[in-house]
Amino acid sequence: MAVRFTTGDRVTVRDLEAEEGLRGHMRAPVYCRGMTGEIERLCGTFGNPETLAYGGDGQPAQPLYRVRFQQSQLWPDYTGPTRDSIEIEVYQHWLKAAQP
């Protein structure tokens, strides 16, 4: 699977459960779905856990990124400083380029 994003790109986490009816083992926590953040780095390419979890081969392997979000965007009631952040590992098929 070709690498689509690079450090600094703005991306939105998809919700494949709602969009495509994906069920079963998924590694994108609900709290980051639909949220927009920035690619911190590409971690490499890894087998897809959605099939590995059922004895599959995990192919096609997926690029994996660390995506940085602002806490205040994830949690509207966040009380800490606006620069507080969170980084989450997200596989490429869960990401789309953010709307400008």
Binding site: R27, A28, P29, C32, C43, G44, F46, P49, L64, R66, Q71, G80, P81, R83, D84, S85, I86, E87, I88, E89, V90, Y91
Partner: peptide, 15 residues
């Protein structure tokens, strides 16, 4: 302190 950023890392995958 509020002058420092707190950065949480959610270890969701292969790192």
């Amino acid at each position: 302190g509020n002058g420092r950023e707190v950065r949480v890392h959610d270890s969701t995958a292969d790192m």
